[in-house]
């Protein structure tokens, strides 16, 4: 197993440009520990990602940082404000795009943004200008006066991102920003997020359970069962998994495993679908020498670059999966169905 400590890279702690500091955060709900003693920092102007399955504690942590839930213990600071003491100052400095749509679909895009601007006390003279500015950012300026109910899922999500920006927050939180969207729309959302980082002085904190997507982050925390299993840049995390993944199907898998163990000191076992799966530093060098003396007949051999999915599998021993739907989850599914109508 991998020693996790080596893979936690929290950057230089003496750096002054920390925007979020979380220390020994614990959150318990009755007898369930949703967040189990986690610590991490987020730096100004980075895209920081939380990667993990549903129920890992991602949303709970975000809700605590956003002052929607009180921590059971530990300290959380955002922009140097404490979540317990300076709630309203924190609320003023953040924008939040929720997992579930919170737009009023009988109102127009402009009305939705206007309400938000009023709640955040954006100066009256500025509101019109800012609405145009954020709509332009997400390419919705032409739809300004359209009812939100006529928007597609991707447009709604873009509008929510625009709404989260209208009061010029220091940190924008995006909780599963691409959930429920088709792959093409998802890519566009990511393009907007990258553009946002480039053009604005803003820190982006996002969660996702799509492996591919977390690769746009500057740093990723892999979170599972309320703990941070690893925190590093996507490139460094991928190194943890070993560089290449090889899967083999042979006529006699147990002999193959023995052969791998004796000749290459690779410990492996049979995975699902009768595959033998293991990692090597460089598959192009490994495969020729492996094939040359292999005593078993190989039916198929496949080599590929490791992905964050492999990192997750390595660190937690399981694949990112969807949890069973709780009653709240059922309400959420219902809510989404309503929004899509």
């Amino acid at each position: 197993m991998i020693d996790n400590i080596n893979y936690i890279n929290n950057g230089d702690n003496n750096k002054i440009d920390k925007i979020i500091e979380v220390n020994n955060l614990v959150k318990k709900f009755k007898n369930i520990t949703a967040v189990n003693d986690i610590s991490f920092n987020v730096f100004k102007n980075e895209i920081f990602g939380f990667l993990g399955p549903n129920g890992a504690g991602k949303t709970t942590t975000i809700n605590i940082i956003c002052t929607l839930l009180p921590p059971t213990s530990g300290t959380v600071r955002l922009n140097n404000y404490d979540v317990n003491k300076d709630k309203y100052k924190i609320r003023n400095s953040i924008g939040l795009v929720f997992q579930d749509p919170t737009l009023d679909d009988r109102l127009t895009a402009m009305e939705n943004l206007n309400f938000h601007a009023l709640l955040y006390d954006v100066p009256f003279k500025e509101i019109k200008k800012r609405i145009d500015e954020v709509l332009e950012m997400v390419d919705l300026l032409k739809r300004k006066k359209d009812l939100v109910r006529n928007f597609s899922g991707g447009m709604k999500r873009r509008l929510e991102i625009a709404r989260g920006l209208i009061h010029y927050p220091k940190v924008l939180f995006l909780d599963e920003p691409t959930i429920g969207l088709d792959p093409q729309t998802r890519n566009r959302i990511w393009e907007y997020i990258i553009k946002l980082k480039r053009e604005k002085d803003i820190t982006i904190f996002l969660t996702t359970h799509y492996m591919e997507e977390s690769e746009i982050c500057d740093r990723i925390a892999i979170i599972d069962e309320g703990k941070i299993a690893a925190l590093n840049t996507p490139e460094n995390l991928k190194k943890i998994a070993g560089s290449d993944i090889i899967t083999i199907i042979s006529e006699d898998n147990s002999r193959l495993i023995n052969y791998l163990k004796e000749n290459f000191s690779i410990a492996t076992e049979i995975h699902k679908e009768n595959e033998v799966r293991f990692e090597v530093k460089d598959s192009s060098k490994f495969i020729p020498s492996f094939i040359r003396h292999c005593p078993v007949k190989i039916l198929s051999i496949n080599a590929r670059k490791s992905t964050l999915n492999d990192v997750f599998l390595n660190l937690t021993g399981k694949e990112i999966r969807d949890e069973n739907a709780s009653s709240k989850e059922m309400m959420r599914i219902h809510a989404r169905a309503r929004m899509r109508r």
Binding site: R91, N92, D100, P101, T102, D104, R163
Partner: peptide, 12 residues
């Protein structure tokens, strides 16, 4: 949980 109020609750 799922609507506008959530948005209001996180506003200042």
């Amino acid at each position: 949980e799922f609507g506008f109020l959530k948005e209001v609750l996180v506003s200042p």
